[in-house]
C-alpha cells in the first residue's frame, strides 16, 4: 500500500501547517477557518486509521457545530488587531510551558508503548477485526456494555452542564409581549368578534 503513507503525510502536513496558521494568522476569523481545516484533516487521519466513525463524529460535532459557534462569536467581536499583537510576548512563556508539558505527556504515552510493548495490551480492549464487526458496532458494543456507567456518567455531567448554562443565561423580561400560538389558534369567532348596533351620531 503506497497510497496510505502518501495520504498520511499529506493530511499530517496540512494539519500541522493549519495548526501553525491558527496561532500565527492576524485575523481571528482566519484563525478559526484554519482550525476547521485542521479538524478536517485530523478526520482524514482517523479515516486512514480505520476509525471512520470517529472521523465522521469529529466532523459533525467539532466542525459542524462547535466551530460554527466559534465563528459566530469571533465574527461579531470588534477586534483591534494592534492590541491583539501586543499581548503576544507577555503570554509566550506560559503558552510555551503548557505546550512543553503536553509534548512530554504525548512522548511519554507513545514512547511507553515502544519501550514496553506489553503495556499496550493492558490499556486497551482489543478491537475485533473489521471482518467480524464494523467499528460502529464494536464501539456500540463496548460503550453500552462494559463502559455503560462511564457513558451514563458522562451523559449526566453534560445534562448538568446544559441545565447550568440555561439557568445562568435565562432571563424573563417583564412586560414583553410574547406570541402565544396556542391562544391564537384557540380563539373562536364568538370570543373575538362582537356585533354591536351603533346608533348613528352617538358612537360607542
Amino acid at each position: 500500500m503506497i497510497l496510505q503513507p502518501i495520504f498520511f503525510y499529506l493530511f499530517s502536513a496540512v494539519t500541522i501547517a493549519a495548526a501553525l496558521m491558527v496561532i500565527s494568522s492576524r485575523n481571528p476569523v482566519h484563525s478559526v477557518l484554519f482550525l476547521i481545516l485542521a479538524f478536517f484533516n485530523s478526520a482524514g487521519l482517523f479515516v486512514l486509521l480505520g476509525a471512520e466513525f470517529i472521523a465522521m463524529i469529529l466532523v459533525v460535532v467539532y466542525v459542524g457545530a462547535v466551530a460554527v459557534l466559534f465563528l459566530f462569536v469571533v465574527m461579531m467581536l470588534d477586534v483591534d488587531f494592534v492590541e491583539l499583537r501586543q499581548g503576544f510576548l507577555q503570554y509566550l512563556p506560559i503558552g510555551a510551558l503548557i505546550g512543553i508539558i503536553l509534548l512530554v505527556e504525548l512522548v511519554a504515552v507513545l514512547g511507553g508503548t515502544i519501550i514496553a510493548p506489553e503495556v499496550a495490551q493492558q490499556v486497551a480492549q482489543p478491537i475485533p477485526p473489521l471482518a467480524e464487526a464494523s467499528n460502529i458496532a464494536a464501539i456500540g458494543e463496548l460503550l453500552y456494555t462494559k463502559y455503560i456507567f462511564f457513558f451514563q456518567t458522562a451523559g449526566l455531567v453534560l445534562l448538568v452542564a446544559m441545565i447550568g448554562a440555561i439557568v445562568l443565561t435565562l432571563r424573563h423580561k417583564e412586560g414583553v409581549k410574547r406570541q402565544d400560538i396556542g391562544a391564537q389558534v384557540g380563539r373562536t369567532r364568538e370570543a373575538a368578534v362582537e356585533l354591536v348596533k351603533v346608533k348613528s351620531g352617538q358612537g360607542i
Binding site: 466513525f53 465522521m56 466532523v59 457545530a65
Partner: peptide, 13 residues
C-alpha cells in the same frame, strides 16, 4: 459503512 453519517457531516458543513 458510515454513509448516513457522511451525508450528515457534509450537510452540516
Amino acid at each position: 459503512n458510515v454513509g448516513v453519517l457522511y451525508v450528515f457531516a457534509v450537510s452540516s458543513l
